[in-house]
């Protein structure tokens, strides 16, 4: 089973999304939560990096954190899936372990 990585910081402020993208393997999954959800938006300076990741990793965003910050599924890059907290729990259960990139 592959790993689940969570990232919780905006890529415009911290390097943790980049660390996660460069140190996660193909076939693993990345879930953006809290302030990291803004990394999923279209047209940002990290969009290309994230689009490249989507090609061989599963990228998810926590929908409630997106909504909390004023955005919806329509605002995020194609290929990023939205999950709720129950979906977050499922992702944890379905992957071999979870690394929180703090």
């Amino acid at each position: 089973m592959a790993m689940l990585h969570t990232v919780n910081k905006s890529p415009f402020e911290r390097n943790s999304l980049n660390s996660c993208l460069t140190k996660s393997k193909e076939g693993s999954s990345i879930l953006l939560i809290e302030d990291a959800v803004v990394g999923a938006l279209k047209g940002t300076i990290v969009a290309d990096k994230l689009s490249a990741a989507i090609a061989n990793k599963n990228v998810y965003v926590l929908g409630s954190d997106l909504n909390t910050r004023g955005f919806t599924e329509a605002d995020i890059l194609d290929g990023i899936k939205t999950v709720d907290y129950a979906g977050f729990v499922d992702l944890v259960a379905e992957h071999s372990n979870v690394q929180s990139w703090l």
């Binding site: 140190k23 393997k25 979870v98 690394q99």
Partner: peptide, 13 residues
Amino acid sequence: LADLMDDQDLVIS
């Protein structure tokens, strides 16, 4: 490092 992490039961960062 990516391979090493993938091989763990727990990764605590």
